[in-house]
């Protein structure tokens, strides 16, 4: 990845312009040729740096009011296999390995579960628990009670 790739990421992370030729506008911002911007974005898509290009819905606005951060304590030597299983479920939007902070925070697998309401999040969490079986020593659902700030992931230079 070079400097132009980085500039393209910075210029598009909050979305593409809704204009007839959005990549022309991006090209102007990053001072490059539009065809080059498109080629580089295709390459980043192939490399997995870009996961997808499309409309990015806001779950909450679409009625998915239940938002549970589920956290699990699973053995470190099995977390990759288990994480991939859970990460593939369609109601899980993020699934990450994060460090424990013992003794108070034993959880190392974080999976964001979205549902229409609290009950559906609880049901989906029970399904994850069934998949993990007794490999999960403990888990919790941390429901969000208030959104205090949400500006979309963006980098600040």
């Amino acid at each position: 990845m070079d400097d132009l790739d980085r500039r393209i990421i910075m210029a598009t992370q909050e979305g593409l312009p809704l204009t007839l030729r959005p990549y022309d506008d991006v090209a102007k911002t990053v001072d490059a040729d539009p065809a080059d911007v498109i080629e580089r974005m295709k390459r980043m898509l192939d490399q997995g740096i870009i996961r997808r290009v499309g409309v990015v819905p806001n779950h909450y606005a679409l009625g998915y009011r239940g938002n549970g951060m589920t956290v699990w304590d699973v053995p470190d030597d099995r977390i990759q296999e288990l994480g991939r299983k859970v990460g593939a479920l369609d109601y899980v939007s993020h699934c990450y390995h994060r460090p424990r902070h013992l003794p108070h925070w034993p959880y190392n697998l974080f999976c964001m579960v979205h549902g229409k309401d609290r009950q559906s999040v609880e049901e989906q969490t029970a399904r994850i628990a069934a998949i993990l079986g007794n490999t999960a020593r403990d888990h919790r659902i941390l429901f969000s009670t208030r959104i205090l700030k949400k500006s979309g992931l963006r980098l600040v230079a």
Binding site: I9, L16, M44, I50, R52
Partner: peptide, 14 residues
């Protein structure tokens, strides 16, 4: 309804 239209980047790439 939409957060944005555009690319979703892999975390921590930049």
């Amino acid at each position: 309804t939409l957060s944005r239209v555009g690319a979703v980047f892999k975390p921590n790439t930049v």
